[in-house]
């Protein structure tokens, strides 16, 4: 994927205000180092192109923009999220550029949350998402669930959704389950308190929790 060069100030403004985070390379034709960074960005664009957009701008042709961002040397890279400069890398530091692209590319809503939720639900073989923690449940349903799980003496881990709004809302969508607590075995949703109670009543609980 080649990196488009900005042709006008309007084009520049449209690009940096886009929904996607924009990686802007301030460059100059005569500087050999810029070519090096440009090649690095082209490589990054191959696997981050769906999350970040990469453009270059000839610093000397747009003095106002360059002044605004205090571009004193090329190459310089500035990262924009919805029009705001959120980070920058001065000079040829491909490792740093790569790390920041990965970080910003990863923090775009959607996939990264899903990956996080997948990791969290698989954190332990038996995983409970609840209000409060096992020692201090902060809702009646969560408390009843902990009492039932403790009675099985199976090992389990808990995650307090009251401390993390992103997980609290995200997990509802991820698992298509609107309420808490939620019980996972090896990353698979078993259900909420009603289901755990019902499994227990049917003497199927331990089998279900062992997966």
């Amino acid at each position: 994927m080649s990196i488009a060069s900005v042709k006008s100030e309007d084009e520049y403004n449209t690009l940096i205000n886009a929904e996607k985070t924009t990686v802007v390379l301030f460059t100059a034709d005569w500087a050999e180092q810029c070519k090096h960074v440009q090649d690095a960005l082209e490589e990054l664009a191959k696997f981050l192109g769906n999350k970040l957009q990469f453009v270059s701008i000839a610093a000397e042709n747009f003095p106002e923009i360059s002044m605004k961002h205090q571009i004193e040397a090329v190459p310089t890279i500035i990262f924009f999220t919805k029009g705001t400069a959120v980070d920058r890398v001065d000079g040829v530091n491909v490792a740093e550029i790569t790390a920041k692209c990965k970080k910003l590319g990863g923090s775009v809503a959607g996939e990264s949350l899903e990956e996080r939720l997948k990791a969290l639900t698989n954190k332990a073989d038996l995983m409970v998402f609840m209000k409060g923690d096992r020692n201090a449940p902060r809702c009646g349903f969560s408390r009843q669930l902990i009492e039932i799980l403790n009675a099985t003496s199976l090992p389990y881990e808990t995650f307090d959704i009251l401390n993390d709004e992103e997980v609290r809302q995200g997990l509802k969508t991820y698992s298509d389950w609107p309420t808490y607590p939620q019980v996972y075995v090896k990353g698979e949703l078993i259900g909420g308190l009603d289901i755990i109670k019902e499994l227990k009543a049917n003497n199927e609980l331990e089998i279900a929790l062992k997966g």
Binding site: C139, G140, F141, D176, W177, P178, T179, L189, I190, G191, G192, L193, D194, I195, E198, L199
Partner: peptide, 26 residues
């Protein structure tokens, strides 16, 4: 399955469950 039954009910009440904070079903 138990999970599928509960999912059916949850989806029938998807809007309502955004406001109802405690809900148990059989």
């Amino acid at each position: 399955t138990l999970l599928q039954k509960h999912r059916l009910v949850n989806s029938a009440l998807a809007e309502e469950l955004k406001e109802i904070h405690a809900f148990s079903q059989k």
